[in-house]
Each structure stands twice: as C-alpha cells, then as structure tokens.
Simulated scan of single mutants.
Amino acid sequence: MALGAFIVIEGLEGAGKSSVMGALKSRLEEHAIRVVTTREPGGTPMAEAIRDCVKQAWPDETVTQQTELLLMYAARSQLVENVIKPALDDGAWVLGDRHDLSSVAYQGGGRGVSLATLSTLRQMTLGTFAPDFTLYLDIAPELGLSRARGRGELDRIEQAGLAFFERARETYLQQIEALPNAVTVDASQAIEKVQADALIALQQFIDNRA
C-alpha cells in the first residue's frame, strides 16, 4: 500500500473522536503504515493560532458567522497544503480529527450559512480535494455535551446551545447518507464498542484498497 490515504473522523462534541483516532492509528501501524495525525481547526502553527482565535470567547465583541466561517477555511487551507497533501504524496496515511464536513454541519446546519456559500469557499480552498474515507461517530447532542462538560469548561463553540447541535447532527446525517465512502458508528455505546466498530470499518476500507 504505497499510496497514501486521507481518513477523517467526524462527529459532535463528546463523540469520542480522539479515542477512536488513537485506536485507528495503532491498527494502521500494525499494518506497517506510516501515519500522520491532524486536527481541525489546527495542525500547523498558523492554523493552531486560528484555532485559539475561533475557540476562545470574545466578551467585548460578537464573533460573526462570516468571521467564524472564514477562519475555519483559512485554517483548513493551511493544514491541507502544508501537512496533509505533502504527507499523502510521501505515502503516509493521514488521520484527521474533522475536515470540511464539520463546516457543513456546524457553520452550515448549526449557524445557517447557505450551502452555496460553503460550496464557494470549498472550491476556492480545497478544489476537488476530499477524504478517501469518512468515519462519522453519531451521538445525541445531550449525551455528547454531557461528556464534553465532563472534560472541563466548554469553549465558545461548545456553548452554542442544544438546538445548534441538533441542527448540526441532522446535517451530518443527511450528508453522510449521500457519501459513498462513509460509515456511521453509534457513538453512544461504551468507548470500547465504539472503537471496535470503528476498527471493523477501517479494516474493510483497507481490504478494499488491497
């Protein structure tokens, strides 16, 4: 398997993306595959600075939907061009904690940004670049947010409210159903079962590429 592959893990807050990423990384390395892990927003020095800007509260001003959206795509462009594409060209497999589908769900479904606007930004920053495989960890917003609170104080986006995450989840489900290279895993299960189901999906993807 000389060619690299870009695998993305998507889901709401508290779905267990980090834990699943660790399990997938270990399995890929068992196959002697070199793995690069990334997260969005973030993954490069500049993109991490943008992440801090997006996530933190700004008590003296309103963060507009347009600002949030543009920052997300700015960070994504930096990550794709400086890390993901070079790694894939070098034969590595890239595991991404979120990618473009997060903007469709959060800024599109959650914030109400039009699909036309999202499509324009996607074309400008990504062109035809897309994941080879998407693993969506599905969880009810109430449960996901409860788990997120257990990790500590919620950031600005995590404080968007239950209705926001319900809209984001609905958008995720609609989008995933239309993707031929995506699998949904029930993330409300115990994390061990979530990881096991994710590994089964990963193995099927590996087998199909062999």
Results as ranks from 00 to 15, higher is better:
Asp155Cys: 04
Gln56Lys: 14
Trp93Gly: 01
Leu135His: 03
Ser146Cys: 11
Val83Pro: 07
Pro86Thr: 10
Pro180Gly: 06
Ala190Lys: 14
Trp93Met: 01
Glu158Pro: 08
Met72Gly: 02
Arg98Pro: 01
Tyr106Phe: 15
Arg34Leu: 01
Ala196Leu: 13
Val94Trp: 06
Thr38Phe: 02
Gly91Ile: 06
Val36Tyr: 03
Ile84Pro: 07
Phe133Asn: 08
Leu3Phe: 08
Asp207Phe: 01
Gln123Leu: 10
Asp90Met: 06
Leu145Trp: 04
Thr62Leu: 12
Leu101Gly: 11
Ser188Asp: 12
Gln56Ser: 14
Gly152Glu: 12
Arg27Ser: 10
Ser103Ala: 10
Asp207Ile: 02
Arg98Asn: 01
Leu173Thr: 08
Tyr73Thr: 12
Pro86Ile: 11
Glu158Cys: 05
Gln174Glu: 15
Asp90His: 10
Ala23Lys: 05
Thr64Ile: 04
Pro41Trp: 00
Ile139Val: 15
Ala87His: 07
Asn208Gly: 12
Glu48Phe: 02
Gly42Thr: 02
Ile84Met: 06
Ala140Gln: 14
Val83Ser: 05
Phe133Lys: 06
Leu162Cys: 07
Met46Leu: 15
Ala130Lys: 15
Thr117Gln: 11
Met72Tyr: 15
Ala23Cys: 10
Arg76Trp: 11
Arg169Ser: 07
Glu177Asp: 14
Gly110Ala: 05
Gly112Ile: 07
Glu153Met: 08
Asp155Glu: 11
Thr134Ala: 10
Gly16Met: 04
Ile50Lys: 01
Val185Glu: 00
Thr171Glu: 12
Asp90Gln: 14
Arg147Ile: 03
Gly161Trp: 10
Ser26Gln: 15
Arg169Asn: 08
Cys53Tyr: 13
Arg167Asn: 13
Ala160Met: 13
Val8Asp: 08
Glu13Ser: 04
Ala87Arg: 09
Val94Asp: 03
Thr128Ala: 11
His31Cys: 09
Leu12Asn: 12
Pro59Gln: 03
Leu143Trp: 04
Gly144Ser: 00
His31Met: 05
Leu154Val: 08
Arg27Gln: 12
Tyr106Arg: 03
Val54Gln: 02
